[in-house]
Design a binder for these strands. Structure first.
Length: 797
DNA sequence: AGACCTAGTATTTTT
DNA sequence: TACTAGGTCT
């Protein structure tokens, strides 16, 4: 790492990433944890709530806890479930666990809510009343499915806007409501429920499930099947949930289904970072959890290892304006650092120009472009910035565009593959039946859909019912798909895809298309993705997406006979429970992939505040801090909305490690009109002492200061390094060597009983004979050092 | 089938 | 402004 300016001193150890793996012995794992982290990691096996502030090492706590429990023999890998929201977070956990544990992460249920549901339903497809190779609809598939229904039911799509209907369906499912459970108030909702009902029937007929269905099916199956529920409750001794503040009602209820009397659930979250209420997240789940899971003590992780003091002061002060918080204050030992810089621009254009200049300077002074991030409230704001960066010739990367598996050509290819796997997938059928064109027009398709509806069969099964030219074209299409299915039998995944790309005519189509080159590249990339998925490495690394439980057999064994054996029906020939193609298709729906493949480039990062959550950068620019934009005008009318905007701002601020810039503009082009804005109210909620205005305050309009902003590089700010702020080893890591067993017959990880403090877990053992001491985590009573010659510790089994 | 035109609409988003 | 969906015309 290079460093010239003090500002660019070697990075503080990132949360959990300190140095080499600490050796595969229990106490080594705990080295470098601060007291609160240590307490959380070694908590007795009871449900616990961890309030983890931004940058407080939450992922480290989560992974270390799992590793520690396993290494001390309190838990087997098969007894763990760790749930996250994103594939990225799940992968991160697996990677870290892999580094910490000598044993591979086999059999551990680490994944996203949806990924784990998929895994569960694959194992119990029969009980869940699903076809064995059921496929998953992504949001756009779902939308087109709803559109078809609205059309079929002859409804006015202005009264029943497909997108809104989609929300209604997903929303109902997330409340755990089937069509029969939904409250019907008026005509509108009555019809909505009918659409919901029809949608369900259609999905069931086609053998597909949407995201919410994955959750709901799993929940219902566990709720209704006592034997199965008890089996899983016994199996998972420890369940850990990341980003708990983002869970919705269904996810909470789902979690309860997995939780038995012996299950310890550790919920980790931060109410101040709850920014997804708009899509159903219930922050209230945190307090509900505390109450309903009998949490005895809440551990707060408030030590921040990411940012300098001024940045944290700004964050703390801002968020203190919210009510109904669980209460938390971030602190650092890194010193105040530089002030937060504030810039007022005359126009969005000059704001962009200022940013480009500033970023260029940072880069010249040694900061990697990828360590510089520009955040905005809404995607539309990126445009001006992009054009400024483009003109300046600075590489940048915008997050949030189309993801790989969502690109049109990729979706087309996937539709062909799905049809090979399941000809009754009408969504896929309609997507590609006339792409490339095969003389199958709207009229023909109407006839086909009518016929299918009348007979209750799939489109593919109904092609013979359509007369004339259209009918024979349809039959030719079905024959094409059938031929592909035949021809690809026994081929590997790569060969299947290549065959399909040629036979479908997709490749030829894009070859003649003038802008087809990129698309062909994407299709080649699809082949690569499949290859990567299949290879040993891909399967191993990608265990998140691995649809089949490696221990499916083991599950079956442990289950009561009545529910077990029927569910895992391997292919008679190959013995596979699921074909590689089906597995790959599942992977494609569950993980949309990166949004831009241009990896390797050192580029400035542009994204919304929402997508910045969980990330961190040396320098962060929060732009467009204007009333109406941030906070957004649609949110300011009610208190809840405003508080969520404030949390959003809090998330944005806490992304910054070393330097934070806030900017706003007097005017801005929005929807083709110039808007005159006043600065965000959030400026009034920041501590003046932590700010430095780069432009004069209370600047009136039109005073034309154009570019006379003072360079942010005003004289060396003489910062010390942030080194030392890292997870400095507290006193719990004695050099006396790993003592895991002693003459007392106690070992680390063991549960013990103390007459005064009750039940606890042994965290450290050191010294011998009369000198022997033990560190014990008594949960509610805290962490204690006890002299073994005095304290009476009784081992519990 | 495909080019062309018009009107309507514009937070935040993962799975 | 800039995109989409949908309609109409060739």
């Amino acid at each position: 790492m290079t460093a010239s300016l003090p500002l660019f001193s070697p990075d503080a150890p990132e949360e959990g990433a300190t140095g080499a793996p600490s050796g595969h012995e229990p106490q080594g794992l705990l080295r470098g944890l601060n007291p609160e982290q240590l307490a959380a990691v070694t908590l007795p096996a009871k449900s616990a709530l961890i309030l983890a502030g931004a940058g407080s090492g939450k992922t480290r706590v989560l992974t270390t806890r799992i590793a520690w429990l396993i290494q001390t023999g309190q838990l087997t890998p098969g007894g763990v479930m760790a749930v996250t929201f994103t594939n990225k977070a799940a992968k991160e956990m697996l990677t870290r666990l892999g580094a910490m544990l000598p044993v591979p992460v086999r059999g551990m249920w680490v994944g996203t809510f949806h990924g784990l549901c998929n895994r569960f339903l694959r194992a119990h497809w029969k009980l869940a009343n699903l076809p064995q190779g059921f496929q998953i609809l992504d949001s756009s598939d779902q939308l087109s499915a709803v559109k078809r229904i609205i059309k079929a039911m002859n409804l006015d799509d202005e009264r029943f806007v497909p997108k809104q209907v989609t929300w209604f369906i997903a929303g109902s499912k997330e409340e755990g409501l089937r069509p029969k459970d939904v409250d019907v108030r008026d005509e509108q909702s009555r019809v909505m429920v009918q659409v919901y009902q029809a949608y369900e029937e259609q999905c069931q007929r086609e053998g597909v499930v949407d995201f919410a269905e994955l959750m709901l099916r799993t929940y219902e199956l566990l709720r209704d099947n006592v034997a199965l529920r008890e089996h899983y409750q016994r199996r998972f001794r420890h369940i850990l949930v990341d980003e708990f503040q983002d869970t919705n009602r269904l996810q909470y209820a789902w979690l309860k289904m997995f939780t038995g009397p012996q299950t310890a659930v550790m919920a980790v979250g931060d109410d101040d970072q709850s920014i997804y209420a708009f899509r159903g997240a219930q922050v209230g789940n945190m307090t509900a959890f505390e109450r309903e899971f009998g949490v005895e003590q809440v551990i707060k992780l408030e030590r921040n290892y990411r940012s300098y003091g001024n940045i944290l002061d700004a964050a703390n002060e801002l968020i203190s304006h919210n009510t109904n918080r669980l209460g938390k204050n971030l602190s650092t030992e890194a010193g105040p650092g530089e002030p937060v810089r504030v810039f007022e621009a005359t126009s969005d254009f000059s704001e962009a120009q200022w940013f480009v200049d500033e970023a260029r300077q940072l880069h010249r002074d040694g900061m990697a472009r990828s360590d510089i991030a520009l955040l905005y409230r809404s995607n539309a704001q990126s445009r001006v910035i992009e054009s400024a960066l483009f003109n300046a010739g600075m590489p940048y990367k915008v997050y949030g565009g189309l993801r790989f598996f969502e690109r049109a050509e990729v979706k087309h290819a996937l539709s062909y593959l799905r049809l090979i796997e399941n000809p009754n997938d009408d969504t896929s059928f309609l997507r590609v039946v006339n792409f490339p064109t095969r003389g199958i027009g709207t009229r023909t398709l109407e006839l086909l859909q009518d016929a299918a509806r009348a007979s209750g069969r799939s489109l593919s099964q109904s092609v013979t019912a359509v007369p004339g030219k259209g009918g024979s074209n349809l039959q030719a299409f079905v024959a094409l798909i059938d031929a592909m299915r035949e021809a690809t039998k026994g081929l590997n995944l790569r060969q299947i895809i290549e065959h399909m790309l040629h036979e479908s005519g997709l490749l030829d189509f894009y070859k003649t298309d003038k802008e087809g080159q990129d698309r062909i590249e994407n299709l080649e990339e699809l082949v690569n993705a499949a290859e990567a998925f299949v290879t040993q490495e891909g399967f191993g690394k990608d265990a998140v997406a691995l649809p089949i439980d490696e221990h499916a057999g083991a599950i079956a064994e442990g289950l009561p006979k009545a529910v077990a054996s029927v569910d895992l029906t391997p292919d008679a020939e190959t013995g596979e429970i699921m074909s590689p193609l089906a597995a790959f298709l599942t992977h494609a729906s569950l993980e949309a992939g990166d949004n831009q493949a241009q990896a390797g480039q050192d580029a400035i990062q542009l994204m919304t505040v929402h997508s910045a959550k969980g990330l961190e950068f040396d320098a962060v620019f929060i732009t467009g801090l204007e009333e109406g934009l941030f906070p957004h005008e649609n949110s300011v009318s009610d208190v809840d909305g405003l508080e969520e905007e404030r949390r959003l701002m809090y998330v944005a601020i806490t992304r910054a490690r070393k330097r934070l810039y806030l900017s706003f503009s007097q005017t801005r082009m929005l929807h083709g009109q110039t808007r005159y804005n006043i600065k965000s109210r959030f400026f009034d909620e920041l501590p003046e002492s932590a700010l430095r205005w780069l432009t004069p305050r209370n600047q009136g309009f039109g005073s034309g200061f154009a570019r006379e902003y003072q360079s942010a590089w005003a004289k060396g700010s003489g910062l010390g390094s942030i080194v030392g702020a890292g997870n400095v080893a507290p006193r719990n890591a004695p050099a006396s060597g790993p003592v895991t067993k002693s003459s007392h017959g106690l070992r680390v990880g063991q549960s013990v009983f103390h007459t005064r403090f009750g039940e606890g877990v042994l965290v450290t053992l050191e010294g011998t004979g009369d000198d022997a001491r033990a560190q014990v985590n008594f949960g509610r009573h805290g962490m204690k050092w006890l002299a073994l010659s005095v304290a009476k510790l009784t081992p519990i089994e």
